[in-house]
Amino acid sequence: MATERAGMKQQFLDNSARYEALKTEVTHTLEKALESIENVKIHSVTARVKSVESFLEKVERKDYADPFKQSEDLVGIRIVCLFLTDLPKLKELLARTFDVISEEDKVNRGDASSFGYMSHHYICRLSAAHSGPRYDDIKAIKFEVQARTVLMDAWANISHHLAYKNEESIPVDLVRDFHALSGLLYVADRQFETLNRDAAHSAARAEKEVLKSADIQDSAINSDTVRALLQRQYPDRKHANEETVSEFISELPWIDLSDLRDLAKILRDNHRAALEYEKQYPPGLDGRGSFADIGLARAALAIYSPEYAAQKYSSVDTSHAEFRNR
Rank of each mutant, 00 (worst) to 15 (best):
D177L: 15
F178P: 10
H179T: 03
L185F: 07
Y186M: 10
V187L: 06
R190K: 08
E193A: 14
E193G: 10
L195R: 05
N196L: 09
R197N: 13
D198R: 07
D198S: 06
H201G: 08
S202C: 06
S202E: 04
A203M: 09
A203H: 03
R205N: 09
R205C: 02
E207T: 04
E207V: 00
V210K: 09
S213P: 04
D215I: 13
D224V: 03
A228P: 14
L229H: 03
R232V: 03
Q233G: 00
Y234N: 08
Y234M: 01
D236I: 10
R237W: 01
K238P: 02
H239I: 08
A240P: 03
A240S: 15
S246R: 08
F248K: 04
I249E: 08
S250K: 12
P253D: 05
D256E: 15
D259P: 04
L260I: 00
R261C: 13
D262N: 12
L263M: 11
L263D: 08
A264D: 14
A264L: 07
R268G: 13
N270F: 10
N270M: 09
N270E: 12
R272W: 04
R272E: 15
K279S: 14
Y281I: 12
Y281S: 00
Y281Q: 03
P282N: 01
P283M: 06
G284D: 04
G284A: 10
L285A: 10
S290F: 02
S290E: 07
F291R: 11
A292T: 07
D293N: 02
G295T: 02
